[in-house]
Simulated assay, not measured.
Amino acid sequence: MLSTPGGHPPDHWSPTAAGTAEALPDVAPRLRDLRRGRGLTLEAAAKRAGLSPAHLSRLETGNRQPSLPMLLGLARIYGTTVAELLGESAPEREPIIRAGLGEPAPADGWTYHRAGVPGRAMQALRLVVPYGSQGDLVRVHPGEEWLHVLHGRLRLGLGDAVHELNPGDSAHFDSLTPHRIAAVTPDGAELLFVHTLLQSPDVHPHI
């Protein structure tokens, strides 16, 4: 499905400058706190980041300075931004999304209604899915997805299994599982949808 916005470095950064210890503030405590806050062990976080546990431990204790690619990778794993890793204050976000705020965005027959605020680790949308199949389109990407059918019937393919969901039914699965979504009812289906880049320890679908 959709991917959440990733963190981007400030405009005045350059990869060369970001690779030097002098160019980066002390991010070690924030790296450690974010990992613990996400419930990840040192070994699990290091594996997802493509680092050794010893290397990540040195980053968290301040004995090594992370490069920009490392910061980007860790920000995605922890569902945050590089700016937060660097301790920059995020702008205040309005927590309430009023009905009718913003125009719906159509794309490839789907209609996306905003149900959350941008820049969060979790993306929330209200979707209108058209009738019919997606052809050969199968989605596979890091993260988790949760959906809840409001109206119509939905066909959800997860790996080799196909599930039909009625109004009131929900699904929660890891999006590394190949998945496909289509409406069964001729007038389409409407659903609530939440996606996050954070991956659960279980890579099997939860239905």
Results as ranks from 00 to 15, higher is better:
P142I: 05
R114D: 03
R126V: 10
G135H: 01
R120C: 11
D136S: 15
M122R: 05
H141E: 07
R126P: 00
Q123Y: 02
T111P: 02
D108T: 11
V140K: 03
W146V: 05
P142L: 09
A115Y: 00
L127E: 03
G143Y: 03
L150E: 11
L147H: 00
G135P: 02
H151V: 08
V138S: 01
V129P: 05
H151G: 09
R120K: 13
H113S: 08
H141T: 10
V149L: 04
G116E: 06
H148G: 08
G119I: 01
A121T: 05
W146I: 08
D136T: 14
V149Y: 05
H141K: 04
Q123H: 05
R120L: 12
R139V: 14
Q134C: 09
W110T: 12
L137C: 10
S133Y: 08
E145W: 03
G109K: 07
L150V: 14
G132K: 14
H151F: 12
D136G: 15
E145R: 01
L125F: 15
L137S: 12
D136P: 06
H141G: 08
H148A: 11
D136A: 14
P130I: 12
W110S: 12
A121I: 04
V117R: 07
G143M: 03
L125W: 11
G143P: 03
E145D: 09
L137I: 15
P130E: 07
W110H: 13
P130W: 05
E144F: 13
L147Y: 00
R120M: 11
Q123L: 14
T111W: 09
P118N: 04
Q123R: 01
A107V: 14
G135M: 07
G119V: 02
E145M: 01
V129D: 11
T111M: 11
P118R: 03
H151A: 15
V128R: 11
A115C: 02
T111G: 08
V149E: 04
V128D: 10
L137A: 14
L150P: 01
T111N: 09
W110K: 07
S133E: 12
G119P: 04
L147M: 07
H141A: 13
G116A: 12
R139T: 13
V140A: 04
